[in-house]
Computed example of a mutant assay.
Amino acid sequence: MAALVRNLSDDSTSTAMPALSVILPASNEAALIARCLSSLVASRWNAAAPVETLVIANGCRDDTAGRARAQAGAFAARGWPLRVIERAEGGKLGALNAGDAAARGPVRVYLDADVTVSPDLLAQLHDALDTARPRYASGRLDITAGGVMARAYARVWRQVPFMARGVPGCGVFAVNAAGRARWGAFPEIISDDTFVRLNFAPAERVGVPAPYRWPVAEGLANLVRVRRRQDAGVAEIGSAFPQLRANDDTPPFPARDKLRLALRDPLGFAVYAGVALAVRLTPARAQGWSRGR
C-alpha cells in the first residue's frame, strides 16, 4: 500500500454528521500543530452539527501526529471529532486527497498547520458557504512576520492590490459541496490555493471579515525561495490548466502606486522589490514539495 494510514478514528469521535470538515495537512509541524488546533477548538460555533477536524501527518520525522492526538480531550469536550491520519509519504497534495477521502462534512476548510484562526472564522465560512450554488470563501488575511526583513517585506506585500482587495486564500480556503464538485482529486501541482481559487469565477468568491494569522518566510534567502515557488506555482496553473485563466481577476499594480509605496516605506519597498528582482535574475534550483514559508 502506497500510504500508511493508521488509527483513522483513534481520537475523539462523533456519530453526528459534521456541518464542516477541516482538512489539515501537516509535515514535520510538531512545533506548530498544537497552536493551530487550539485556535480551531476555541472557535465560536452555534450550529447543532459539529466541526470535524482531520490532521493528515504526511512524511513526518517528528511527533506531529502525537502532538495532534494530545489535543483530543479539548475536541471531545465539545463533541467535535478529531482524527489523525498518518501517511508515510510526504507531499501536500496527497495529504489533501487523503483528507478529502475521509472527510464527511459538506463544507471543506483546507487549513495549513502554521495558521491560527480567529474565533469567528469557521462560523463565518460556514454561513458564507451555506448555499446550493458553488462558492469559495476565505477570511481576512493577517500576514505575520518576526525578523526585520520579513516585516519589511510583509508591510508592502499586504498592500499589493491582489492581497489587499482580493480573496487570496493563503493558508486557509473553503468550499461548499457544489464548489468541491468542480474538480476531482487534487492534481500534483505547486500551488493548491491558486488552483482552487481559479476554479471559481470572481463573483463566486466570498471574503468574510473574520481574520486569520499566516506567517511569512523569515530571512532574505527564504523570502526569495518562497517567492520563486509562488511564481512557479502560478505559472504552472496557467500552463497546465489554461481554461482557468478566465477566472483570474488579479488587479493591476500601477507604477504610480508603487512609487507612493516606495516613498511611504523605502525599506519595505526595497526588500519587496529586491526579492522580486532576485527571483528574476537567479536561476531556480530543482526542488520537490516544501512548505510555503
Results as ranks from 00 to 15, higher is better:
29 E>I: 03
283 P>E: 07
126 H>K: 12
188 E>F: 03
211 P>H: 09
10 D>V: 04
25 P>I: 08
50 P>N: 03
289 W>C: 08
113 A>H: 01
78 R>A: 01
242 P>F: 10
71 Q>A: 15
98 A>I: 02
245 R>V: 15
86 E>C: 14
190 I>C: 07
271 V>M: 08
151 R>F: 09
243 Q>E: 15
253 F>P: 05
58 N>Y: 02
15 T>M: 01
51 V>G: 00
268 G>P: 02
133 R>I: 04
233 G>D: 02
159 Q>H: 13
283 P>L: 07
188 E>Q: 14
179 G>E: 03
145 A>C: 11
292 G>L: 04
94 G>L: 10
75 F>L: 03
113 A>M: 05
282 T>Q: 06
197 R>L: 13
271 V>Q: 04
261 L>Q: 15
124 Q>E: 15
199 N>Q: 13
203 A>C: 07
97 N>W: 01
79 G>H: 03
112 D>C: 06
100 D>Y: 04
185 A>I: 05
231 D>R: 12
130 D>P: 00
61 R>L: 12
84 V>Y: 01
277 L>A: 15
105 G>K: 03
19 A>H: 03
98 A>N: 01
249 D>H: 12
22 V>K: 00
3 A>C: 04
67 R>K: 15
229 R>S: 10
121 L>I: 12
198 L>Y: 13
124 Q>S: 12
175 V>P: 00
277 L>G: 06
269 F>W: 15
179 G>R: 04
23 I>T: 03
58 N>Q: 12
107 V>R: 01
79 G>T: 07
260 R>Y: 06
11 D>T: 05
122 L>G: 05
133 R>C: 07
69 R>F: 00
288 G>L: 07
43 S>G: 10
26 A>E: 05
228 R>G: 09
256 R>P: 00
285 R>H: 12
116 T>Y: 00
148 V>K: 08
259 L>T: 14
153 Y>C: 07
115 V>S: 02
107 V>G: 06
212 Y>W: 08
102 A>G: 03
289 W>H: 14
273 A>E: 11
246 A>C: 08
5 V>S: 11
120 D>Y: 05
17 M>L: 13
251 P>A: 12
61 R>P: 00
78 R>M: 02
284 A>V: 07
36 C>N: 14
142 D>W: 10
191 S>T: 11
112 D>P: 02
180 R>Y: 04
156 V>K: 03
44 R>Q: 14
14 S>N: 13
269 F>E: 00
98 A>K: 00
198 L>N: 06
165 R>W: 03
176 N>A: 11
79 G>M: 03
267 L>T: 13
27 S>C: 14
293 R>V: 13
85 I>F: 09
243 Q>T: 13
216 V>M: 15
230 Q>M: 13
216 V>F: 11
37 L>H: 04
233 G>W: 01
236 E>R: 01
280 R>G: 07
291 R>W: 03
86 E>A: 11
68 A>T: 07
15 T>P: 05
211 P>E: 10
131 T>E: 09
6 R>K: 09
1 M>K: 08
177 A>I: 05
250 T>G: 06
273 A>V: 06
28 N>H: 10
254 P>Y: 10
